[in-house]
Design a protein around this nucleic acid. Structure first.
Lengths: 254, 254
DNA sequence: CGTTGAATTGACACCGTTCAACGACAGTGG
DNA sequence: CCACTGTCGTTGAACGGTGTCAATTCAACG
C-alpha cells in the first residue's frame, strides 16, 4: 500500500489507485497546501445545497457523503463519495450545483477556494488536467449508475452499488477483505436504487438467502465476492484503476 | 436568435444558450480553427468504441448521436447528443472511453486532436475552463438521467427524455414550436428508458391518449407543452441555460 | 408488389409499491 | 440494571406496473 495518506493527510487519497495520472510530489504538495480549511461534521450535515452559489470546493478526507436531489418530497441519491473524492469540484465550473451534498455519518472535509483553483489553472496545467480527469471520472461513474438503473432489478442494483463502494474503498486503501462498513441504512440504499425501503429489505434478504452477502446496519459482509460481483454485473473498468481501460502511468498527453 | 452558427459553421452551436460562459469572438475563432477535420456519416456509424484509445475528440455539427453501453447483449443508451455538443471531450482526460459513441441518423462531425487540446490548455486558460464547464454540464445531465430513471415510471421517463431533447434543441437554436424531429425509434427510446420496446409502445400510447404528445417514427408532436413537461417532471435548470441556476454572463472567476 | 424494419396488440407471469403492523436493536435516563 | 424511546429493519397481502412471447399490422421503399 502506498504511503500517500500519511505524507499528505488531507489530499493523500485523491485519485489514489488511479494510476493513469500519478501525481508528482510537487503537485501533491501544491494541492495539500491549497486546502485552506478543514472541518469535521456530524451525520446528515448539508455541505452544499442545490442552487446555492458556491465559491469553494470540498474534498472528503474521512467518512462518507451523498449527493441527493429531492423532488416532490422524494429523495434520490445520485452519487456517493468516499474518502479522497474531490466532491464538488464541478462546482468550480458550474458555480451553482443542481443537487445537495450531504454527509452520511460523521465526516472530515477539506475546502479549497475557487480563487485558489483559478490560480492553479493559470500556473499548473498538469494539475488542472488531473482535476479535470477527476470530474470526468465522476461522470463515468454517473454513466454506470444510469446503466445499472436502466438494466438491473432492485436486488442486483443494490449489489452493484455496494460492489462499487467496496472497490472504491479498495482503491484508496480503505478496503477490507470480507466487506466494509458504511453509515448507509436500507432506506438510503433504497434511495440509491430508486426503490422503496420495503422492497430493498426483501432484495437484501434474497442476497443473504442466496449465501452471497449480508447487510446489517451498514455492515456489509460478503461471503462470496466473485458471486457477488457477478450478480451485480460489476466490472470495475469504469473506475479507471488498473484494468481494461488502463493505459499506463504516463500522462497521455496527446 | 444569435448568429453564431452562421459565423462559425463548425463550432457555432457549442455552449450556445448557456449564457454563463459567453465565448468571445477570439475564443470561438480559436475553437473553430481547431476543428481540423469534418466528416459526414450515415446512420448507426460507430464513431468511438468502448476501450479504444482515442487521440481526438469530436463535436457534433449536425444530426444526432447516442452513447451506448452494451452488456450481455442488451443495449443501454446512457446519453444523447444534439448539434453543438462536444461529444467526447471527456476522452481527452479519460483516454479510453467506457462507452460507445454512435450516430443515430446521418450526422456531420468535426474532430479536434488531443494534441491541439493540450496546446489550448497551455495557452488559453479561459477556453480550457469553458471546455471543463462543458464536460461538467454533461455530468449534470447524466445526474438527471440517474434521477429520472430512479424515480419515474416508463411513460414519464420517456416524456422527460423527450422534453430534454426538445429543450436542448431550443438552446442551440434548432427548436420548433410544436415539437421536433429525431431519428429515434421506439426501440431506441426503450433503450434510453431501460424498458422494452413493447412497453415503450404502450407508454407512448398513453401519452397520446391523454392528449399530451404523439411520437410517430421520430416525429414528436406536443399538443400541450405545459402538461407534457409537468408529466415529465421536467425542470430545465440542470441544462444551465437561463434559469434558477443561472448566474450572469460574466466569467465567475473565483 | 413484395420486402423490411417499425409499431401494435393480447395474455400471463413476475417485479415492485403501498399500507399497515410488528420486531429488533442501540442509546438514554431513571 | 431496567424501562423507555426512536430508528431501523421485517413481514403479509392486495394491487398495479413491467417483462415476455408470439402474432399481426403498418409505413416506407426499391
Amino acid at each position: 500500500m502506498t504511503a500517500e495518506p500519511e505524507k499528505y493527510p488531507l489530499s493523500g487519497r485523491f485519485l489514489l489507485g488511479r494510476s493513469r495520472y500519478v501525481m508528482s510530489d510537487q503537485e501533491r504538495g501544491i494541492f495539500e497546501d491549497s486546502i485552506e480549511q478543514v472541518e469535521e461534521f456530524g451525520p446528515s450535515k448539508t455541505l452544499t445545497s442545490r442552487g446555492e452559489i458556491c465559491d469553494r470546493s470540498s474534498i472528503l478526507i474521512a467518512g462518507f457523503a451523498v449527493r441527493t436531489i429531492i423532488e416532490h418530497g422524494r429523495r434520490q441519491i445520485v452519487g456517493i463519495q468516499v474518502p479522497g473524492d474531490f466532491m464538488d469540484l464541478h462546482g468550480f465550473a458550474l458555480k451553482r450545483l443542481d443537487h445537495n451534498l450531504v454527509t452520511l455519518g460523521p465526516a472530515t472535509v477539506g475546502f479549497v477556494s475557487h480563487r485558489r483553483l483559478a490560480e492553479i489553472m493559470l500556473s499548473q496545467p498538469r494539475l488542472t488536467r488531473l482535476f479535470w480527469f477527476s470530474t470526468s471520472l465522476d461522470a463515468a461513474i454517473q454513466r454506470q449508475w444510469t446503466l445499472k438503473l436502466g438494466q438491473l432489478k432492485a436486488d442486483r442494483r443494490a449489489a452493484h452499488f455496494l460492489a462499487e463502494i467496496w472497490h472504491r474503498l479498495d482503491l484508496v486503501g480503505l478496503g477490507h477483505r470480507n466487506g466494509f462498513r458504511t453509515p448507509l441504512t436500507q432506506a438510503d440504499l433504497a434511495d440509491m436504487c430508486g426503490t422503496t425501503p420495503v422492497h430493498m429489505n426483501r432484495a437484501l434478504r434474497s442476497l443473504s438467502k442466496a449465501g452471497i452477502a449480508q447487510f446489517r446496519r451498514g455492515n456489509v459482509t460478503v461471503w462470496n465476492r466473485k458471486a457477488f460481483e457477478q450478480l451485480a454485473d460489476f466490472n470495475p473498468a469504469y473506475l479507471y484503476g488498473r484494468g481494461e481501460l488502463y493505459l499506463g502511468s504516463a500522462m497521455a498527453g496527446d
